[in-house]
């Protein structure tokens, strides 16, 4: 049994050697039938070959994509963190720039103003709806006393009403109880600026023959001892003359935005030595003068 099996194996080996030798000795010109067969075989093998190649390429590119996505996710996270950090930084810089701009305006005002002043931060607003006030972080220890004028580079804000050791209450121009002597810059008509119930400023007691009109600038007259002459108060919005009174009155729009005040300047004194200039120009004054 074992002998016959080894004999068969030997026969196959001999046939294989003969076949291979025959192939080597086969004349090339007579290889055409083989070529036909090989073409068919190649055509058949092309399909699985292409499919496997495609699958291989897909898998390779897919894997690369997954790897890329993983990297992309990490990179995205990193970029988002960076973006957040930059946004915070940008906001911080914007805030610093705005603060610097405000302080620059205040400093510039102080440079041009010959009177002793102190800059105060606004720390609160009126606790009731019956008065228009600000709370500033400067008090008696900083030299603030009652009655002093409070301004910004954009004009008059009000006067110091109450003084405590470390903070003070400032009554705004818009308060009903406030009164500032003022003059219309163009016509030189005098009047008194007071607040109204709706939180606006009004110039009252204007002479009936005055030619005051909308757009006229109203400035301090310098007649009281709180503000130097010529400080901006506001612009005339509307002029009216009530039947019951002989005077005209005009509603004003202030240059300063009272709801957004962050720093104000307290004029510690407005008396100057003889011969020294007495004008405290504001930014709007100078821009209108082209300065």
């Amino acid at each position: 049994m074992r002998r016959s099996r080894s004999r068969t194996r030997r026969t196959w080996k001999i046939l294989l050697v003969l076949f291979l030798g025959g192939l080597l000795l086969f004349p090339w010109s007579a290889a055409e039938p083989l070529n036909v067969i090989s073409a068919s075989v190649a055509e058949i093998i092309r399909l699985p070959l292409t499919a496997i190649s495609l699958a291989d390429r897909t898998l390779t590119s897919g894997w690369a994509m997954v790897g890329g996505l993983i990297d992309l996710y990490g990179e995205n996270q990193q970029l988002q963190e960076e973006l957040l950090r930059l946004r915070v930084e940008r906001n911080s810089l914007k805030e610093m720039a705005a603060e610097a701009e405000r302080y620059r305006a205040v400093f510039e005002f102080q440079q041009h103003c010959p009177y002793p002043t102190v800059v105060a931060q606004v720390i609160g607003r009126n606790p009731t709806n019956w008065h228009r006030t600000l709370i500033i972080a400067k008090g008696r220890r900083d030299g603030v006393v009652e009655g002093l004028g409070v301004v910004t580079p954009l004009g008059v804000i009000g006067r110091v009403l109450k003084v405590h050791r470390t903070f003070s209450i400032v009554q705004l121009v818009l308060d009903r109880d406030n009164a500032i002597t003022a003059v219309v810059q163009r016509t030189r008509d005098e009047g008194i600026v007071q607040g109204t119930e709706d939180g606006r400023a009004t110039l009252k007691y204007i002479p009936p023959l005055s030619s005051i009109k909308a757009g006229d600038v109203v400035v301090t007259s310098g007649l009281d001892d709180r503000f130097p002459k010529g400080m901006l108060i506001g612009v005339v919005d509307q002029v009216e003359q009530k039947v019951a009174t002989p005077f005209k009155s005009a509603s004003l729009t202030s240059y300063a935005d009272f709801s957004r005040l962050e720093e104000v300047i307290v004029l510690l004194a407005i008396a100057l030595p003889e011969g020294q200039g007495a004008n405290c120009y504001t930014r709007v004054d100078r821009s209108e003068d082209g300065g």
Binding site: I123, R125, N126, P127, N129, D198, G199
Partner: peptide
Amino acid sequence: VASLQVVGSHRLAIGNTAPDLM
């Protein structure tokens, strides 16, 4: 409440009128 009144109540204001938290 007093601090909230002077510092923050104007954020809830309509026009110039704010709620009286006190």
